[in-house]
Design a binder for these strands. Structure first.
Lengths: 182, 182
DNA sequence: TGAATATGAGACATCAATGTCTCAAATGAG
DNA sequence: CTCATTTGAGACATTGATGTCTCATATTCA
């Protein structure tokens, strides 16, 4: 009977990814619980979003660790990272647009940590001569976020195949759309 | 005295790009008019968003026409397109996340037209041998949207320089992050 | 079985945003 | 200048989401 906080968060993420303005009532229904129970678990919408944010950060950092982003060629690290991030892409898509909502007041420091980690990855690639240096690590990081979100939404709306998630993102980010002579 | 509808829309876009949940009161203040006048111009928030949508579509289509996306090498057409889209990027960023809000009920046909135009551009590049064929035109289109939005937000938050807007997007989309031997 | 705990359903007040309305003031045209 | 039109400020009712509360029911554990 005991409600699993984690399950509720995942259900909420699945719904909010599609409709970020969903009602607390809709969230509760999506999680298969009552609104009362939802409010017992999370004291208000803000608490729910904050919990989702913490979950998203935790998943991204876990993905970065599993991908061992500091090891080996940076390009391979990016590929591993995107592959590991796939399960969190939907949640990330919600949080990415939600963050625009928050005033400049308080930016969860977890995002700063994650940002720094990704920036370091791209910088490492540049210093190793793998990545071009005319695109800043900050931009490459933002672009990665953007592609993750685009891919998540496009898949959700059936415009691209789910199985192509990783290759779509990594191939575009690393190699671009232009055809290369092999 | 007569309020310029276009000016109001631009002011609204400028605010809503940052805070998509801004109040009608905030929108009015951003436009330098009263809430009453705002409501006289646009009968409700939905009408305002719809007008912004129409404006966004019109600007994108105008940009596509100015860029002559059907002429010459596809890669050059993409570069021209992104350059022409820059002034509309903020509005596009708002609409991109806002569209997630709307139920699957009604998708403005203008977006479908624009989508088709971009898809055709990427397909043309593939058929001409310019673009690789293992990334679908649909994905390339979505990726372009995502990069436009990412760049707009990153610039707005001061993480990347505004002057790099076009090159950041086109270089990443076309050539990718990997350094190429010249 | 019996007690303790958790949940669901619904009622309820609250709050914020919205849309409408009125009236005075400002603007612009003739 | 005078009149018609437009705007701003504010009051007002409405609406929808939210958070809280109660009580009956269901589940778990001793």
């Amino acid at each position: 009977m005991a409600v699993d906080r984690e399950d509720v968060l995942r259900a909420a993420a699945g719904l909010l990814m599609r409709r970020s303005a969903a009602t607390m009532d809709e969230v509760a229904r999506a999680a298969g619980i009552s609104r009362a129970t939802l409010n017992r678990q999370f004291a208000g919408r803000e608490a729910l979003v904050r919990a989702l944010e913490d979950l998203g950060i935790a998943e991204c950092e876990a993905a970065a660790s599993r991908a061992a982003v500091d090891d080996g060629p940076a390009a391979d690290a990016v590929r591993r990272l995107v592959r590991e991030l796939e399960p969190a892409a939907g949640l990330l898509a919600f949080l990415y647009s939600e963050n625009q909502l928050f005033e400049g007041d308080e930016q969860n420091e977890g995002w700063a940590r994650l940002d720094a980690r990704l920036v370091a990855l791209f910088r490492r690639g540049q210093e190793a001569g793998e990545f071009r240096i005319d695109l800043s690590p900050a931009w490459l990081t933002e672009a990665l976020y953007g592609l993750l979100v685009s891919a998540a939404w496009a898949i959700d709306e059936g415009r691209v195949a789910r199985k192509d998630f990783t290759t779509n993102i990594t191939e575009l980010l690393l190699s671009g759309a232009v055809r290369r002579p092999q």
